[in-house]
Design a protein around this nucleic acid. Structure first.
Length: 108
DNA sequence: ATCGTGACGAACG
DNA sequence: CCGTTCGCCACGA
């Protein structure tokens, strides 16, 4: 079964401003359970143009942190974008998932 | 076709 | 709360 990036982007687009979702959560909602890694890969493949339509900054890891990039400063930008949306970080750079994690309703 | 890599994550010790 | 191991799998060299 081949993974459709569009399917993943579609889920990310549903995450409301000021809320966050985890890679694993996105994978599951997109119909690809246990494929968290592929979600990161898909977001990495976003072009600048697509990036403006997909709120990639709202996707964080299961620890409630912004996943460190191996190259580039995307993680730094991500934090700025989230803070702009009102998402708070603690001294350890963690986000409270109980407060900010998006929990879609069946009807969403 | 094979291999290393990686914006992940759960399980262990 | 670490660090390690392992499962996962699309991609590009």
């Amino acid at each position: 079964m081949k993974i459709s990036y569009q399917q993943i982007y579609g889920v990310v687009k549903r995450v409301p401003r000021g809320r966050v979702a985890t890679y694993g959560q996105v994978a599951e909602l997109a119909g690809y359970p246990r494929h968290a890694r592929q979600v990161g890969y898909a977001l990495n493949a976003l072009s600048d143009e697509e990036g403006e339509k997909v709120p990639w900054q709202r996707v964080i890891n299961a620890k409630g942190e912004i996943s460190p990039r191996t190259n580039g400063d995307g993680d730094f930008i991500q934090r700025l974008l989230l803070e702009e949306e009102g998402v708070e970080f603690n001294a350890q750079g963690r986000i409270s998932r109980t407060t900010y994690q998006w929990r879609p309703r069946p009807a969403d």
